[in-house]
Design a protein around this nucleic acid. Structure first.
Lengths: 147, 147
DNA sequence: CTTCAATTCTTGAATATTCAATATTTTCAA
DNA sequence: TTGAAAATATTGAATATTCAAGAATTGAAG
């Protein structure tokens, strides 16, 4: 018996495409809210990571906020100008720079957090509690299995 | 009774972050494979959409491949130089440009498809059949509910 | 018909990102 | 202890993306 003709799946069925599409849409919505404070999503991520009050090296930060090093350096330059964060040389390893959040940064971060929470709540409403937590679980496990 | 203190969820728990992280990782893997043919992911998407043989307008394409118009125009310029695609003015609406895939584009697209299929199979292996289809389902539904 | 608004695509300037190279410091082997 | 290799962050040039404006065409109201 002949093989069935291998139908060429449209791009919309690829996992990579669905992820890109969903990411784009959710990110667009988040951007929209954060733009109320004139802050790009990446800066919110940076502030959020630093808001534990500890110093974080640039490399650590770059991993955490999904930016590569040079891009992060330049974004941090802007944030330092805006006095949202500041640099301190790591006394234990002087190759490293430790980043800290400023008081002004903390205030801004709180505002941004509540804008972001707004969005999460909006998603919960339209998409459902159960779907959301299931989706999160699956995404975490996908990320795990990719390492 | 006092409310429990609202603990500030770390960024890694936000849906927007998980999506960005998963997208980044899967995209990185796909890029790696497609780089064997020296083609960026977006160009593969373009070729794949055009490989139905029909003409697609720039606006339609931009939506389909998740690029904004000027970025797409410039990428298409490159692909025209490489004779992978070509432009035809839409006879029914001369504001529009219809994009078509060339024979050379078709040949390349086939090679790229098999590289992409490799990746999907790799994901299926490490992540599982069931999780994958469930994740796809949830992503589709999230995208739906966002419109 | 004519005109004005809307649609579609492209262009050029401003901005952002990336790659490769550099500077500094640490690590570790000889 | 010295010197080479690795790790960390930044810089500058090359590249890519985005925003705002422009050109061409269509649609539609008066």
């Amino acid at each position: 018996m002949a093989k069935p003709p291998k139908q060429n799946s449209p791009i919309t069925e690829h996992l990579a495409y669905l992820l890109a599409q969903a990411n784009r849409e959710i990110n667009r919505q988040l951007e929209l809210r954060l733009s109320k404070e004139g802050v790009p999503v990446e800066q919110w991520r940076i502030l959020k990571v630093l808001s534990d009050g500890n110093g974080h090296s640039m490399g650590e930060l770059a991993d955490a906020v999904l930016l590569n090093h040079p891009t992060l350096t330049k974004m941090i330059d802007r944030m330092v100008s805006d006095t949202l964060v500041y640099r301190v040389q790591d006394p234990n390893d002087r190759r490293k720079v430790l980043m800290f959040i400023s008081d002004r940064g903390k205030v801004l971060c709180k505002k941004l957090n509540s804008l972001a929470v707004d969005q999460e709540e909006h998603i919960l409403e339209s998409y459902g509690d159960k779907s959301t937590s299931e989706l999160k679980r699956l995404l975490e496990s996908l990320i795990d299995s990719s390492n």
